[in-house]
């Protein structure tokens, strides 16, 4: 009948209005800067560079192979390769990125760089408070800003990080075993040939790396 639906609606809104003062369950709003929701493990927002060990410059896993730069759909990654080689976290001589910049304002958080990286050097971070008062240089993050330790990776994505570490350890063990075998096969040879991964001459003498941290 006439006006009945309007009265029903008014009663419903009145119940919501009064109920929001009575039951806290109705107010689902989280008062953000003071309160935060617990982070979901699968959450990911923006890439960062993983380093092993304590020194971020030495420990960077990135060897500046340019795959991520080529794959990046919005082209927000800028890499310059170094001309020399430096020992990495496990002491192997590697190329390293002289410049590694990511433009925050361009990145679309697609995670393709992470998927294509053969060295597990770039991973997704969970930090979402990326705003800056300087919209040009403040949003172009350099190598130093991007580098975060493996501990950090373990903190934000523990399951994934453990899997990555296990895989890395297995690969390194395999390489170590292979180089050891070649070294044993040709003991007279003073310098064993560098293998595909560019393992340096002293790689054979390295102790077999386990899961790097923990």
């Amino acid at each position: 009948m006439f006006g009945e639906g309007i009265l029903k609606g008014l009663a419903e809104t009145a119940r919501n209005f009064l109920g929001s003062y009575v039951s806290k369950k109705r107010l689902t709003t989280v008062q953000y800067p003071e309160q935060r929701l617990p982070q979901i493990e699968a959450y990911r927002n923006f890439p960062f560079l993983v380093y092993d060990g304590d020194d971020w410059q030495q420990g960077l896993r990135c060897v500046s192979c340019f795959i991520c730069e080529k794959e990046c759909p919005p082209k927000c990654i800028i890499i310059e390769k170094s001309t020399d080689k430096k020992p990495d976290a496990v002491g192997k001589l590697q190329f390293y990125p002289k410049v590694f910049n990511i433009d925050v304002s361009v990145c679309m958080s697609c995670q393709i760089c992470v998927e294509v990286c053969p060295f597990d050097a770039i991973k997704m971070d969970t930090d979402f408070e990326l705003s800056s008062t300087d919209r040009f240089s403040g949003l172009l993050w350099d190598k130093k800003h991007l580098a975060k330790s493996n501990e950090h990776y373990h903190k934000i994505h523990p399951t994934e990080a453990a899997a990555v570490d296990a895989q890395l350890a297995a690969e390194r063990a395999k390489i170590a075993a292979k180089t050891k075998a070649t070294a044993e096969a040709k003991p007279a040879t003073p310098t064993p040939p560098a293998n595909a991964n560019g393992a340096g001459p002293n790689a054979a003498n390295q102790p077999v790396p386990t899961a790097t941290e923990k």
């Binding site: 919501n16 209005f17 109920g19 929001s20 003062y21 109705r26 107010l27 689902t28 709003t29 008062q31």
Partner: peptide
């Protein structure tokens, strides 16, 4: 504020 409370917001 009233509209917020009607929609269960602050």
């Amino acid at each position: 504020k009233g509209l917020g409370r009607i929609q269960n917001r602050y």
